[in-house]
């Protein structure tokens, strides 16, 4: 069955890529449409996520190597990163604080538990860091993974059109924001937008993950 799940997942992904080219829109972002289709198929066929998990393990074997391979665009565009290092670092740090603080405050305003507040605080960074950071500040690691994915898909789908709406057209700044708030999933979309966006987004997801894991244990008790 595992082979069938893998084949179906790849077929859905290919269809989603075709649909994104044929009908360009934020809502045809492949990671979003594919996820919706697969969740619907699992729900309709009564296959549990547990049964799908062995297929997931095989398909995600190359996720880590693929993320590390983002060093290639970083290498090709290292000059632009070096040139704008300080303003980029300042923007990234301010933006990372803003997304953490606003997540915790909004969660508390909605009357959500302290556990959920702590979990929401880590939602912008890549899954392994988010899960570890969540545990340290009293959040839930499994839920952290779910929040991270939701934030990532949100950033990939709505990030680029929002930036365009606010007239932020500088490719460097677009990549920086997308990588900072929506890690690898946002980066996978930024790569499609252009090489500068992809590069800056990969660098930003790495740096924001490091900053979040260092700062959060000190910051969270004050929020």
């Amino acid at each position: 069955m595992t082979i069938i799940y893998i084949t179906v997942t790849i077929a859905i992904y290919q269809l989603a890529r075709w649909a994104a080219l044929r009908f360009p829109s934020p809502f045809t972002t492949p990671v979003f449409t594919s996820t919706v289709v697969i969740i619907s198929l699992l729900a309709a066929s009564g296959v549990s996520y547990k049964e799908y998990t062995p297929a997931k393990e095989i398909m995600t074997f190359l996720l880590g190597p693929a993320t590390a391979a983002l060093a290639l665009p970083l290498y090709h565009n290292r000059a632009v990163l070096r040139e704008r290092f300080f303003p980029a670092a300042a923007s990234l740090i301010v933006g990372t604080f803003a997304t953490i603080v606003s997540a915790v405050w909004m969660a508390s305003a909605f009357g959500l538990s302290r556990t959920i507040q702590a979990t929401a605080a880590v939602k912008a960074v890549t899954t392994p860091v988010a899960m570890e950071a969540a545990v340290i500040i009293g959040g839930d690691p499994a839920l952290a993974a779910a929040f991270v994915i939701t934030a990532g898909i949100f950033g990939a789908v709505f990030g680029p059109p929002l930036l365009t709406m606010f007239n932020i057209n500088d490719p460097f700044s677009r990549g920086l924001g997308i990588g900072t708030i929506s890690h690898g999933i946002g980066t996978s979309q930024a790569v499609q937008e252009g090489p500068v966006q992809g590069t800056v987004s990969s660098a930003a997801m790495g740096v924001s993950a490091i900053i979040t894991s260092l700062v959060l244990p000190w910051l969270f008790p004050f929020l």
């Binding site: 790849i10 990671v31 996820t35 697969i38 997931k56 398909m59 665009p73 898909i153």
Partner: peptide, 15 residues
């Protein structure tokens, strides 16, 4: 890099 998004799909289905 081109297919980075693919690897997130099986994980996202965990929602």
């Amino acid at each position: 890099n081109k297919h980075l998004a693919f690897f997130f799909i099986p994980i996202a289905a965990g929602l």
